[in-house]
């Protein structure tokens, strides 16, 4: 953390509570930090104060750590297939081996990388599109607003899973990048709708009028005045898109629409199902990757509870209404 971050513009006009209120939330050193960092720190404390969000952060941190240190903690190479085939769990192979003789645990640990990558990449891209489209649609008036709103609604009503499947079927090379792209195309509209609604209410506030009268360009009004007031909604739409991306990726890969040589939880389930793992009693090969997907999706949703509490005090635990 360094001082030059002041210029990033987290401290919008509507962010209330001056530096005087800061020390009671955190260490005394906090009041010496630049204001945007104080705001960020208080946001983190509010999220952490939510018990559910705390569980989510812990689960997410464990999964990220496992993904980052995969080569260190995985017992074997995920591609090595020189073990016995379909071995039951043992000391050497905690979760057994696959039908083609690969270590299930090692594949599971390395698989975290792909799922997390897809979650974050698709989340970030969807959010960027949602911000650009949503904020401008909410800020502009007249024909442009109607047109953008129409396109957003169109993407909202076209059913996501069938669209994902149709798009993925037409594309011949189906790497992780294609999956991210398909998930983004079907996933940005929810965030755009929420951000658009919030922007159109903020647009009528006095501080926006003041900025306009002082001659600021529309781009600056949107990104420096309006956007900082929606940080929590932006975070929520990122987490929502990331959760949808995790489940979307798993579904596509399970259906065989991914690249089957990718090491990910979705393809693990694809191979387990194709080698009839359940019928041969290899149920761990189904249980483990699915549980990891469910835990990742759950942790993202749990963090979202904390973020909801940021933007809506009524949802805070302990009921501060």
């Amino acid at each position: 953390m360094s001082a030059p971050q002041v210029g990033l513009g987290l401290g919008g006009p509507a962010v209330t509570g001056g530096p005087a209120a800061a020390p009671e939330y955190g260490p005394a050193a906090l009041s010496r930090l630049p204001r945007p960092l104080q705001v960020g720190w208080r946001a983190i404390l509010t999220i952490w104060a939510n018990g559910k969000a705390r569980i989510g952060i812990v689960i997410l941190a464990i999964l990220i750590l496992a993904a980052l240190s995969a080569p260190l903690i995985a017992p074997y190479s995920p591609t090595a297939s020189n073990f016995g085939q379909s071995l039951p769990p043992s000391g050497a192979h905690w979760l057994g081996t696959t039908g083609s003789g690969q270590d299930v645990l090692s594949r599971l640990i390395f698989g975290a990388r792909v799922s997390l990558f897809v979650a974050f990449a698709a989340g970030v891209l969807s959010t960027i599109i949602a911000i650009t489209v949503g904020v401008f649609a909410g800020y502009l008036r007249g024909f442009a607003e109607e047109t953008i709103g129409f396109v957003v609604n169109l993407f909202l009503v076209i059913p996501a899973l069938p669209l994902m499947i149709v798009l993925a079927t037409y594309v011949p090379s189906r790497g992780v990048d294609v999956i991210v792209l398909v998930v983004v195309i079907t996933g940005w509209a929810w965030g755009a709708r929420v951000l658009r609604a919030q922007t159109s209410t903020l647009r009528n506030r006095d501080f926006v009028a003041a900025a306009e009268f002082s001659g600021e360009r529309p781009g600056r009004v949107v990104f420096r005045e309006i956007l900082p007031n929606m940080t929590s909604l932006v975070a929520a739409s990122f987490l929502g898109a990331a959760t949808a991306a995790v489940l979307g990726e798993a579904g596509l890969e399970f259906l065989g629409l991914g690249n089957p040589s990718t090491i990910s939880w979705g393809t693990m389930l694809f191979w387990a199902q194709n080698s009839n793992a359940l019928l041969t009693g290899q149920w761990l090969q189904i249980l483990a990757p699915g549980l990891c997907i469910a835990l990742l999706a759950t942790s993202l949703s749990l963090v979202n509870f904390g973020i909801d509490a940021l933007s809506n005090p009524r949802l805070r635990e302990g009921g501060s209404r």
Partner: peptide, 14 residues
């Protein structure tokens, strides 16, 4: 929250 993170096909398989 947990069950809505279950992929449909995974619940089905279990």
């Amino acid at each position: 929250t947990f069950t809505s993170g279950f992929p449909y096909f995974w619940t089905a398989l279990l």
